[in-house]
Design a protein around this nucleic acid. Sequence first.
DNA 1: AAATGCATGTAAGACGTTACATGATTTT
DNA 2: AAAATCATGTAACGTCTTACATGCATTT
Lengths: 177, 177
Amino acid sequence: MASPNLSPTSRVILGMIALGKSSGYDIKRLVDDATSNFWPASYGQIYPDLRRLEDAGLIRGESEPTGGRARTVYELTEAGNAALRQWLQSDLERMFEVRDEALLRLFFSDFGPPEQRLEVVRAMRNWHQRVLDQLRKLDPRAAGPQLTWEFGTGLHQWIVQWCEATERRLAAETDKE
Amino acid sequence: MASPNLSPTSRVILGMIALGKSSGYDIKRLVDDATSNFWPASYGQIYPDLRRLEDAGLIRGESEPTGGRARTVYELTEAGNAALRQWLQSDLERMFEVRDEALLRLFFSDFGPPEQRLEVVRAMRNWHQRVLDQLRKLDPRAAGPQLTWEFGTGLHQWIVQWCEATERRLAAETDKE
DNA sequence: AAATGCATGTAAGACGTTACATGATTTT
DNA sequence: AAAATCATGTAACGTCTTACATGCATTT
């Protein structure tokens, strides 16, 4: 009933449960399909968080075994519903974080030969192309609201195009010399 | 001389030192100016890492006080130079990570009223617009190689435009009802 | 019979930020 | 005289991942 230390990730969990009663396993699958590109979550995060959310009275767990296989399914309490709504309406700050090792390499690759820069951009393009292919394989409706899906595909597509343009530019520079 | 546990961030540090002898303070400033948008670093990361890098024999520190103010300046050793080059040439994997709370809210905002979605996208646009303004204030040449600067501005610009388009779409949907 | 999927969990550690403390120097 | 900047550092904490362990059920 006490309400301490809810991690940022616990909000995804809360949200996923709001979309329908779920077990920890279910949540993991939902997250992988729908939000992992902008908010991943691991079992090591999910299960302890479920405990904390239950201790805080925001969710309620029920045992729903499938045959002899244990299974605990969670649903929101009234408090949990209120907490979710409150979060959705609160001001948002410091919300966008990126860690991109490719850009880091690009930044420092003035160090090496010019072909190295080209190599980095190529690897970068490949990576985002793969993410893009994977995103497109998903049925956007199955993965929840489509706005985020559109954003994801659009973003990676933009990056791929930037890489292509940059590769052409770098190739031209290399040829000149 | 032993070479254990170098954090991902230690590579930024190594790279920054390669660009010129630097103190921990200098590195922090360089990172804030040049790479913080895709690879931030805090003092709590930098100073311990400098120790580890020195213990590993990749950098060498010299005391260069300014008046009575202590100051330790680092430069690369031959081993450090080799390590940097090796990193730049190695294959890169799992290099792009995003955490975006705005998208998370967008994803779950089917919960609340439709105006809430609009509100989230607006806040999102504001945030990226502010980042964009800040990036443009920087002289790209002062902030190191310009490729990463161009990428950053382009990316945030694309996001701002996506938000604008989405806002129009959402507004149109709201009017219809 | 073996492999894959369902289901739950934990321990250890990697990684990073925040907040604090200290003090000298320079600028206003 | 006060404020801002230079400079170094650490302790505590939050967050998250990795790797492991366990065992039932279903598919091949």
